[in-house]
Design a protein around this nucleic acid. Structure first.
Lengths: 143, 143
DNA sequence: CAGTATCCAAGGCGATACTG
DNA sequence: CAGTATCGCCTTGGATACTG
């Protein structure tokens, strides 16, 4: 079910214009909120890795090259807070902690794949556009 | 066409493992790059507004409450560089500049709507999860 | 009208060191 | 193993002033 115009309140309730505007702003914030969650430097890599099954802390650290211990912790805490990832502690020694994608997290990952498909289909176009722009707007047919 | 495992190189070429890892990292970067583009503070609002037709600079500024002149300029320049938005200058006085979503930008907006739908469907779940987390992990049935 | 230039504050993130 | 704590750089973005 698509709700194409919803971001600016088209098709929304017919109360005062300011109420419609406020609803738009709220929705915009929610959407941007989620986009930032999934668009920040590490969440996507972590969620994607967890998309293949449960992982321990250091497994994730190895699977996501370049991530710092601090950022892995922070990223996992945020994902856990939002209910996208669950954390299970097994009180053994040495301690074992497993992170797992929740059903909610899986549904989000599904949607993100839609964007991944788009990137695969169009990142050539973007590269080309950037090249043209950076080269001083030379048209495609130019010298 | 979905390519679910592609972010970590599953189903990719069977060269050296390091080559597969490198390809994974590259794809991850590209995807995160696009997600950041669309997930930053203002791009989504601007793109969505342009989804309804061409707009002039100050029309956009009014249509996106709270955006500063600087950030509108920066956002539009980045979107233009990526070929998602086109800029047309009409050398009149007073000067007139129109911004329009390109076909490429429209296809991206389509995919973003997929995420918007997800947000509409699940932001209650996220709010609930946050509430539980912030309240000290009280279970759903507990007092 | 449609920008550009400059300054400044807040937050993101990496590096490093320490702990149960 | 699985973190927490602290420091400090760098980027992001708002406010303000100036321009063609």
């Amino acid at each position: 079910m698509h709700v194409k115009g919803s971001l600016d309140g088209a098709g929304a309730v017919q109360s005062t214009p300011s109420a419609a505007l406020q609803a738009r702003d709220e929705l915009t914030c929610q959407v941007r909120d989620i986009l930032n969650r999934v668009g920040d430097k590490w969440s996507l890599s972590v969620v994607n890795e967890l998309g293949h099954g449960s992982r321990r802390f250091n497994e994730l650290k190895r699977a996501v090259p370049g991530i710092s211990q601090r950022m892995l912790t922070v990223t996992l805490r945020v994902l856990e807070r939002d209910g996208l990832v669950s954390r299970s502690v097994y009180p053994e020694v040495p301690p074992r902690v497993e992170y797992t994608l929740t059903p909610l997290g899986s549904t989000l990952l599904e949607r993100v794949w839609g964007l991944i498909d788009w990137v695969l289909e169009h990142h050539d176009d973007i590269d080309e556009a950037r090249g043209r722009h950076d080269a001083g707007r030379a048209p495609a047919s130019g010298p």
